[in-house]
């Protein structure tokens, strides 16, 4: 197993711990997006706890903010704060680790949680980089259910109008949302075609839970000039825990003791 994949499974273990402790969170989406976050925070983003005020750091926006549990796991692991604090206090009274990203947590660039804001925030950040002649890049992670928000399409138009090749979106396309299959709730078939129609460079990553595959996708995005890029990552909701995979009920499900034990066992078997 490569080191990135190993890391993503260690982080899955942290997520399960956080979710089990708090009886809160969005475990299904956390497990589908964690490989994307692992690749970004360990290989792609030019940012670190020491450079978090540096104007040249890369920017990251978690547009699907309800999966902040996964983001807390990665940021804590990268040393932005004590990871155990996040695991133990996530969603607890007066904790800074609330259920959506907020800037009281070191490493979080912008507040999020209401869907459909991330691309537009990214457009602002990427435009600022162009205006200032800075080389930093801006990355935004979205959910596929989130793509029903119309504000995304306003921002997609602006990004291509301004040729923001320093902007890279990722869609965590796990095919499920709270009410069921995304294609049944409100079909967003041919999401790549939609981005293409709005003037974006589209990179399809067939296994969006494969860290090496994602890394290749981000390399292509960084090399592409003249248009913003989107990585369409075909993921599995609940990936890594057999009884959660592709089950809509795990959108924000809470684990029983038995399920927790089973989930931990499965993840640790992968790590052996």
């Amino acid at each position: 197993m490569d080191s990135l994949t190993k890391k993503s499974y260690e982080l899955r273990r942290d997520i399960i711990e956080m979710i089990y402790n708090s009886k809160a969170g969005h475990v299904g989406g956390d497990l589908s997006v964690i490989d994307i976050l692992t690749v970004l925070y360990y290989k792609v983003l030019n940012t670190s706890p020491d450079s978090r005020k540096d104007p040249d750091r890369d920017r990251f926006i978690m547009s699907k903010g309800h999966c902040t549990d996964a983001l807390y796991a990665v940021l804590g692991d990268r040393g932005y704060f004590d990871k155990q604090e996040a695991i133990k206090t996530f969603s607890a009274f007066n904790s800074r680790f609330i259920g959506h990203p907020n800037t009281d947590v070191p490493g979080i660039e912008m507040n999020s949680g209401s869907l459909g804001h991330g691309i537009a925030l990214g457009v602002g950040m990427a435009l600022a980089a162009k205006l200032d002649g800075r080389s930093y890049r801006t990355y935004v992670v979205l959910g596929d259910g989130e793509m029903a928000e119309g504000s995304n399409y306003e921002a997609m138009m602006a990004a291509s109008h301004y040729k923001l090749d320093n902007l890279c979106a990722t869609v965590d396309l796990n095919g499920l949302q709270i009410s069921g299959l995304t294609k049944e709730v409100l079909s967003s078939d041919d999401l790549g075609e939609k981005f293409r129609a709005f003037g974006w460079n589209v990179i399809d990553v067939q296994d969006g839970n494969s860290c090496p595959g994602l890394l290749d996708g981000y390399k292509l995005a960084a090399e592409f000039k003249g248009k913003p890029s989107v990585v369409i990552a075909h993921t599995v909701k609940g990936k890594g825990v057999s009884f959660m995979e592709n089950k809509k009920g795990w959108h924000h499900g809470v684990l029983t003791e038995e399920q927790y034990t089973q989930a931990v066992k499965e993840l640790e078997e992968v790590l052996l």
Binding site: M110, A120, L121, V123, M125, A128, A155
Partner: peptide, 10 residues
């Protein structure tokens, strides 16, 4: 929102 993104970069 784009305005907010711009402002977050100074």
């Amino acid at each position: 929102t784009v305005s907010a993104g711009l402002a977050s970069c100074g």
